[in-house]
């Protein structure tokens, strides 16, 4: 069916290509908000269970319709624009936060032959998109004309820039091992069982990457940007209703994106943990394996939120600059030497 559609549009030349690409984009971006919706439900239920509460259980069977009730509530709320705010940028900022979070999905390989763009510099493209997302936060803070919002956005920006470095260095290790920036090829290099996955040789980088991912998405315990006990809610204090929901959507999409990236780079992407699992009628062709890994990583995001108290701001900066960056730099040297060694003397790695 998919192959038939691809052939049909492929035979139409450039317009066909455009329509086919549009269809693929819709197929990726439409399920995303749905994933976010159920992720929020999962978050509340999981944290509820961890704290011996029920969480939302009243709307629909077992609370399954709760996210839709929330969205409806948001939709009907009034969007208040503060006096003397920069009206244009105030409305533009949530879009600037959301757009990169969606656009970054362009090069993610979902399975052996299921992706939007097979870009050779795919990893760099995702880095680029995640580095743009910070504009939404800066502008939201500045355009609201509020001290709390500005402070929140300044904190958040400094934090994002700091942790992006550690994250970038963690990705350098993957690039060294895989010898390519193409995400599909990176996954293919990890073929053949979980002992070939990169999280084993790059374990320190994997840990740094995941913690940096938590910091990048402004999640607990790094949510200084929101810090409800001191900054009310940080950069989105002044946002209400559906405009606030856009920020919310962007944050959760980034969570899912970084989990997918972690699964792709360190946990073998669409590969099954044992090679012969692929022949068994367990989880079909790859995509479900990826989904399973991503779900596991997202659970860790929620688990961390339920477990740790918030960092102090100088501690966050210290962790980023004085612990993670030296650690990743040292491990990159170790990996580079190991790669060179095995290239010179054959075998191993």
């Amino acid at each position: 069916m998919i192959q038939w559609l691809a052939d049909f549009f492929g035979s139409m030349g450039t317009p066909g290509l455009v329509i086919w690409t549009m269809l693929k984009i819709v197929a990726i971006t439409l399920p995303l908000p749905l994933c976010v919706a159920f992720l929020t439900l999962a978050e509340r239920r999981v944290i509820g269970a961890m704290q011996s509460r029920c969480g939302p259980i009243r709307v629909g069977p077992n609370g399954i319709l709760q996210p839709f009730a929330d969205v409806l509530k948001m939709l009907f709320k009034e969007v208040v624009i503060p006096a003397r705010a920069n009206r244009l940028l105030f409305r533009f900022a949530p879009l600037l936060a959301l757009a990169p979070a969606v656009a970054a999905w362009g090069t993610i390989p979902f399975s052996e032959n299921l992706w939007l763009a097979d870009l050779n510099a795919g990893l760099l493209y995702i880095m680029m998109m995640s580095s743009i997302g910070v504009y939404g936060i800066i502008l939201a803070g500045w355009a609201s004309n509020s001290r709390y919002a500005l402070l929140g956005s300044l904190r958040s920006t400094a934090q994002l820039i700091s942790y992006e470095l550690a994250m970038g260095f963690a990705l350098v290790g993957v690039i060294l091992l895989a010898n390519t920036l193409n995400l599909g090829d990176i996954v293919r290099h990890q073929a053949g069982g979980f002992w070939h996955w990169y999280f084993l040789p790059l374990f320190p980088l994997f840990v740094v990457y995941f913690i940096a991912a938590i910091a990048e998405t402004n999640r607990h315990p790094f949510d200084m940007a929101e810090g409800e006990s001191e900054l009310v809610a940080g950069f989105h204090v002044e946002y209400s209703g559906i405009v606030f929901a856009l920020f919310f959507l962007a944050e959760y999409m980034n969570m899912i994106l970084l989990s997918v990236l972690a699964a792709t780079l360190f946990l073998g992407g669409w590969m099954a943990p044992l090679p012969f699992f692929n022949e068994l009628p367990l989880l079909g062709d790859g995509f479900l394996w990826l989904a399973l890994k991503v779900a596991g990583l997202l659970f860790i995001f929620l688990w961390v939120r339920a477990s740790f108290p918030r960092y102090r701001y100088d501690q966050i900066m210290r962790l980023g600059w004085k612990v993670f960056i030296p650690l990743t730099l040292v491990w990159i040297v170790v990996v580079a030497v190991a790669v060179r060694w095995s290239a010179l003397f054959g075998g191993g790695a």
Binding site: L119, L124, M128, V134, I138, W142
Partner: peptide
């Protein structure tokens, strides 16, 4: 020139201009 293009965004848009905006806001 995909590498140059992506590097331009990562460096100038993702870092340099963010600091610019920082200063302008402060």
């Amino acid at each position: 020139a995909e590498f140059l293009g992506l590097a331009l965004v990562v460096i100038y848009v993702g870092a340099v201009m963010v600091l610019f905006l920082f200063v302008l806001m402060m």
